[in-house]
Write a protein that binds this DNA or RNA. Structure first.
Lengths: 227, 227
DNA sequence: ATGTAAATTATAGTATTACTATAAATAATC
DNA sequence: GATTATTTATAGTAATACTATAATTTACAT
């Protein structure tokens, strides 16, 4: 029996739980590949259906529209990353050590061999980095928020915020620093790939330099806010 | 004779220079109001045309599509902000003082009485904050970049990066810190408005707190990277 | 095994969107 | 005042984002 990763998702994100059926899983798997390949704007349910060997109407039975599907995938991603971060920092004693590990995990590309589910996490990571912001940059962000679509992201942000507070009890902006850190990790990667003059990283992967920048940023701020 | 603000824009952004005709200016003015009102997803050239009292085809004579129009508006905005920042920091002696002024300008809402053009800068500022990222979060970001669509943003980023370098010659990440600062200023405002638990700001405008957070961030990093 | 209900998928359609082609009107210039 | 260039209007098309309903498959109780 194969190990399957399963996260219970907010039921308002879907019409029909895609994790429950083979067709649903195929929709998730293929939509990740297709959104990654052609981008959210070009992505349609018809193209997805053809790629997945099902009909358009079938996709509509699972997801109201492509934005909901994106929100689902993004929520799944943050849930997964949070789970991984919690797992990999749990045994560390010092909050500074935890923070260092988190920065490394935020800034590093996802390795393929970690895929133990029907989701290609490496590709999904790239989708989140390149278009994840579109999940909330909408006019209906308030409504979506009231339905708790962003809960996984918020929980990760709080998790990291608490570690920041452990490092510097009394620091006034743990959540703002946490959300800034997460955004900067993904943003700097995007900029380095596509608009490199907005960064100071040399050609190549740049992962190490990005980690150094983020460490310098976070620990610089913390050093300036001594206990 | 009325004072009119005019920036020469990258000619690849439009098919027909909207700043040259009354109809063109009307398109800019009304598109800002409409995108702000209904969001980029719901925004169509037909709706814009009806609102502006012209036909859809007329809009297409000026802009290839709505994404180009957004790119134009966003580029205009960064050009305008850069001009304002250069103007308001030029007479300041100390780089730290300049940086403080820049942070204030990035984090503060735009006041209405500054509108001396056919563009409503206050509304445009909100568009850039809420959906400006969509201008580059696309599959064709590389192509757009090669056509220099993002030059105004890059130039602002370099301008601020140079001031950071004046504060700390030898600091390794002036551009990354600059782009992170700009993004964080807008992002924290968006979060504060729509996903407040990702920040630590109290209800109300939060402008002062956002400025304090950003100052603490930037000057904390700089303090940790002593000359 | 078989009948019935429930779940799932397929087919067919509609209004809107994102354009293009071309005709008509207006303005600019000599 | 005629010619040319510019601008706008009209009319269309293929694709998109859905909805309604019919057909099929699956589930499972007897």
């Amino acid at each position: 029996m194969e190990l399957q990763l399963y996260f219970r998702m907010n039921s308002h994100l879907y019409l029909h739980d895609p994790q429950e059926t083979a067709t649903g899983k195929k929709i998730l798997k293929e939509s990740i590949l297709l959104i990654h390949k052609i981008g959210l704007e070009e992505f349609t349910f018809l193209k997805l259906a053809k790629k997945a060997g099902i009909t358009e109407a079938t996709v509509y039975r699972y997801f109201e529209n492509k934005h909901r599907l994106l929100s689902y995938l993004v929520a799944w991603y943050w849930t997964w990353l949070h789970w991984r971060i919690a797992r990999d920092t749990g045994m560390l004693a010092e909050p500074e050590e935890k923070l260092r590990r988190i920065i490394r995990m935020l800034a590093s590309p996802v390795r393929d061999d970690l895929s133990i589910s029907f989701v290609n996490e490496r590709i999904l990571h790239e989708i989140v980095a390149e278009q994840g912001a579109k999940a909330y940059l909408t006019k209906h962000v308030g409504k979506d928020n009231r339905m708790n679509f962003f809960k996984p992201y918020k929980e990760l942000c709080h998790f990291i915020g608490n570690i920041i507070l452990e490092c510097r009890p009394g620091y006034a902006y743990p959540h703002s620093l946490s959300s800034t850190l997460i955004e900067a990790a993904y943003m700097q990667k995007f900029y380095h790939n596509h608009l490199p003059s907005l960064t100071d990283f040399s050609e190549g992967s740049g992962t190490k330099e990005r980690i150094l920048f983020l460490e310098n940023l976070v620990f610089g701020v913390l050093a300036a806010n001594q206990k």
